[in-house]
Nucleic acid binder design. Structure first.
Length: 901
RNA sequence: GCUGGGGUGGCGGAAUUGGUAGACGCCCAGGACUUAAAAUCCUGUGCCCUUAGGGGCGUACGGGUUCGAUUCCCGUCCCCAGUACCA
């Protein structure tokens, strides 16, 4: 290799060397601590996008850093290869989804290799291969045995655009996670996994991992699981008409409330339109009520518009229910704001202390009764004449009209014998009282629903269940797994299961009675595959088990996981659930599969739209002219023929046509520069607006480092690894000494940053170090040791960001081409002593304003610093003739003189 | 609406526990080298005033605490994300 830097040449050379020497292939080694670095696996669409590059570059930085720190690092990659795009491609282009997928894997692997990612490719898994999905089925059967997999008919989320069923997590926010379109409801029979069995664990387990996870993700999971503690209370229904054999006591409505302390303020019971009590009395209710009920029901099946606030609606059914605490008779209403899916589908309406109930009461003119008083106003009331306080025996509704609900905790009033108790006491004691008297109990409810995994799709793992005319639902035998996908299923994408059209697939015999039977024709949600894939990496060729307990126990849990936060409540909840199930099966020995989670921001691009053609154009493109304001925001965009273009910022992707091709970046700038830049451009958790201008800076920096190494190559070749002094390191205060200080400070900064997963600031630190080396004259022989130390340090620290060039330059410096890992290279250590400055610049302030600077030795006594400050010319001038009120000296930091007059 | 997170130069972004605001990079300007260009190197680069020395202002806005506030507290505005009646 000559003195000119050709990125492509260096990169090809080291990619080949790495592959040949298998340095990234990890084996169990009890001598070294292990480190499992994982990034979220990609869908093999055929094209890597810049978001992937960011994700995998960050993971590679950590993997390299840990390797150089002496860890035994597992850094695998695989393919989330089941899913809709393969099926869509098959429908659109008539390709075989398996072949299409395999081809994409090959081309994407090539892209990853050209970026130089340090994966252990032997461990690669792909979800669509029978040797993998066999174990999806294995897990399903285990869960079926354990009672964790069951089938039921419900209203499932349905995406009309994708013609697909969605789990609640995938339809979060009422929008399809894939296409973003509004979701509707559809009645389907499907298989569920009992995630709710683990609701408490899923929420409590967050405490264990909270420290290492992005706070936003933890919060979203907590909210998603949505545990709330309260009570059930039974209200007996009275039927005013004495028709039939129905008695008043035969029916009760159980409500769930978190605020049982407000029960004396209940003015009605409001139930969901689907509530059983409505079913039961539907025939007897006036037609107008029945009409309203079906109107509300129909409304709920429509896609929800996120923006629009749904107006409260409802109707008095004419039924009455009795408040078990007060004996008061309350009207039973149907309300559109009560959901059958949560709690009991019935609420007690307390308008004075609940915003929704307040709104409902206001609209329908229902009475509002205050039963909680804030502590402050209670104190105020108490201090006044007791006669002024509200008459507890005869509370008058709306006596003191309020304009909003008071939802805070406080003191109970107008609540019979309970008045005077605090909310906290009331909640506890009233629930106990209800339990003791048989009309209620404490209860906990969750927002989390079971995970619906049935998909009426082809490209997924078949659900290993058989329906026998005689035996009913029968699980496939373990020894018959995998249940393989047929090669030729008619794919239409119309929402019916393609497997139902392949008799060779579904016609089978019952595993129990050998009689004629047919297979389940739905496949599993692809999120099943990604729930346990990273365990498979530890033991990728196991044919009898998903993985071996002992092998997996060495590598797992994952030490560091990196991926997008779009999976905060989908994949990341499923995989935590899965780990807990695996623990219960006895496959793993811990509760939480991922110790630390880093969520990286999206890579987005400025996109332009041509209104007339509806086409997207990515900038920079020669087709677009852009005017920007002072802040760099676009104010006007035109195509080169002068047509106005609409513009916006959106996620970069091939399918949107606004993506930057990583291959192109590598071709033009080199993989190292592209990686270095994407790490340097913005903090990893921020969104990154792709702008190619900055990447030139990364190229320049690498070239500078390259030239620097060659410039010093001969001068430092004679410097042995002996002590500084024996190698011409000069006296204190000279350039070599200053450089050593900079080197050791940089090592500290870079190590600390990487340890805390900051990737932009260490790059800045390395640039500073390079600048410092650049300041040294090559003729200065007294600095040679320092330069050698700085250069090797710089190269080693650069490795995680730009491994190819680092390997090459490391070879130049040590005179060997074997590679750092083979040579046992280590990330440099720093010496506190050397990092310490021998003179510190101390700002001197007068009245808090910076006026001068002095130079003091580190650890200078306060008196010395004070003396030096007063000795300073400028300070003397400013202070003279004034009273010195106070002098603040912060050791090693600053001097502040406070004067008056 | 609610819940989180945030607001720092032309831009991306730095700033231990309150202690020199603007590191590093991009952009831009000037200079050196060159027949020329590219590359490279050097210099400047928050805003305003000033001939200079220097001075004033400045971390969304308004207050407060402090010798000292980007950092802590109160209020206001704005942006981003999550969420959609969860009882």
């Amino acid at each position: 290799m000559d003195e000119k830097y050709f990125a492509k040449k260096v990169e090809r050379k080291w990619q080949a060397k790495w592959a040949e020497s298998r340095v990234f292939e990890a084996e169990i080694d009890d001598e070294r601590p292990k480190f499992y670095q994982l990034e979220m696996l990609p869908y093999p669409s055929g094209n890597l996008h810049m978001g992937h590059v960011r994700n995998y570059s960050a993971g590679d930085v950590v993997a390299w850093f840990k390797r150089l720190k002496g860890f035994n690092v597992l850094h695998p990659i695989g393919w989330d290869s089941f899913g809709q795009p393969a099926e869509d491609a098959a429908i659109k282009r008539g390709v075989n989804p398996r072949e299409w997928t395999e081809e994409n894997i090959v081309s994407m692997r090539g892209q990853m290799e050209r970026i130089g990612l340090s994966f252990d490719w032997r461990r690669q898994m792909a979800a669509h291969r029978p040797e993998y999905y066999k174990f999806d089925q294995w897990f399903f059967l285990k869960m079926y045995e354990m009672g964790l997999a069951y089938k039921k008919t419900t209203q499932v989320n349905w995406c009309e655009h994708d013609q697909a069923t969605l789990s609640n997590e995938q339809a979060s926010g009422g929008l399809c996670w894939r296409c973003g379109n509004a979701v509707t409801k559809k009645s389907l029979e499907q298989w569920f996994l009992k995630t709710t069995n683990y609701a408490d664990e899923l929420i409590d387990g967050l405490n264990e991992i909270e420290e290492g996870w992005a706070p936003a993700v933890v919060k979203r999971q907590r909210d998603w699981i949505g545990r709330s503690k309260g009570a059930y209370v039974d209200f007996k229904v009275k039927v005013s008409r004495a028709s039939g054999a129905m008695t008043a006591d035969a029916v009760t409505i159980t409500v769930f409330t978190t605020r049982i302390d407000t029960i004396y303020g209940a003015n009605a019971i409001v139930v969901a339109a689907e509530h059983p009590v409505i079913e039961r009395f539907l025939d007897e209710l006036p037609p107008v009520v029945a009409g309203k009920v079906s109107e509300i029901r129909a409304e709920k099946l429509k896609p929800t518009d996120r923006e629009a606030e749904i107006e409260k609606d409802g109707i008095d059914t004419g039924l009455k229910a009795v408040n078990p605490f007060s004996g008061e008779e309350l009207p039973v209403w149907v309300g559109n704001y009560v959901m059958m899916e949560y709690g009991t589908g019935a609420v007690m309406s307390v308008p004075a202390h609940d915003e929704r109930d307040f709104e409902f009461a206001k609209k329908f003119g229902l009475p509002v009764r205050k039963v909680i008083e804030s502590v402050e106003s209670k104190e105020a009331t108490d201090s006044r004449d007791p006669q002024d306080s509200i008459d507890l025996k005869d509370p008058v509704d709306s006596k003191d009209p309020i304009d909003s609900a008071m939802t805070d905790y406080g003191v109970m009033i107008n609540s019979g014998d309970w008045s005077g108790k605090t909310t906290e006491d009331g909640k506890r004691e009233m629930a106990d009282f209800a339990a003791a008297n048989g009309f209620g109990k404490t209860a906990v409810t969750y927002r989390l629903r079971d995970w619906g995994i049935s998909r009426q799709r082809f490209w997924g793992s078949p659900i290993p269940i058989i329906y026998c005319e005689k035996c009913g639902t029968v699980p496939e035998k373990f020894e018959n797994l995998p249940v393989r996908l047929p090669e030729n299923a008619p794919l239409t994408g119309t929402g019916e299961s393609p497997l139902a059209k392949v008799p060779e697939f579904y016609e089978t015999t019952c595993p129990r009675c050998d009689g004629p039977a047919h297979r389940e024709t739905d496949t599993m949600d692809t999120f099943v595959d990604s729930s346990w894939y990273f365990f498979r990496y530890t033991d990728p060729n196991n044919a009898s088990m998903p993985f071996d307990l002992e092998t997996a126990s060495y590598w797992t849990p994952v030490d560091q996981y990196i991926g997008g936060d779009d999976h905060a409540v989908m994949h990341l909840i499923y995989t935590r659930f899965w780990a807990k199930v695996m623990r219960d099966i006895g496959l793993v020995k811990f509760d939480e599969p991922v110790k630390r989670l880093l969520t990286q921001g999206m890579v987005v691009g400025e996109t332009f739209f041509d209104d007339s053609t509806g086409k997207r154009i990515y900038y920079p493109a020669d087709k677009v002219e852009v005017e920007r304001d002072a802040k760099g925001k676009i104010v006007e965009a035109r195509s080169n023929d002068g047509k106005h273009l609409k513009y916006g910022i959106e996620r970069m992707s091939k399918s949107k046509g606004n993506g930057v091709d990583p291959d192109e970046m590598v071709e033009i700038y080199g993989a190292d520069a592209a990686r270095l830049f994407i790490m340097f451009a913005a903090p990893i958790e921020h969104e990154l607006v792709w702008n190619e201008a900055g990447i030139e800076g990364a190229v320049r920096f690498l070239q500078r480092v390259w030239r620097m190494v060659y410039k010093w190559k001969d001068a430092i070749s004679a410097v042995s690894s002996g002590s500084a002094e024996t190698n011409g390191h000069g006296p204190a205060g000279d350039s070599g000494r200053a450089l050593r200080r900079k080197t050791h400070q940089t090592i500290k900064r870079v190590s600390d940053s990487l340890e805390s997963l900051q990737f932009n600031t260490p790059v800045a630190a390395l640039m500073e170090l390079a600048n410092a080396i650049g300041d040294i004259d090559v003729e200065d022989s007294s600095a040679r040791f320092a330069v050698k130390e700085a250069l090797t340090g710089l190269i080693l620290m650069l490795t995680p960001f730009a491994p190819h060039i680092a390997e090459e330059l490391y070879g130049v410096v040590i005179g060997s081409d074997e590679g750092m890992l083979a040579k046992g290279a280590r990330f440099p250590d720093y010496s506190e002593e050397l990092a310490k400055a021998d003179e510190i610049e101390i700002p001197v302030q007068v009245n808090g304003k910076l006026r001068s600077r002095i130079f003091a030795p580190p650890g200078a006594a306060n008196e010395v610093m004070e003396q030096m400050a007063f000795a300073d010319e400028k300070i003397t001038e400013l202070v003279s003739g004034k009273d010195v009120v106070k002098v603040v000296v912060v050791p090693g930091r600053l001097v502040n003189i406070v004067v008056r007059g």
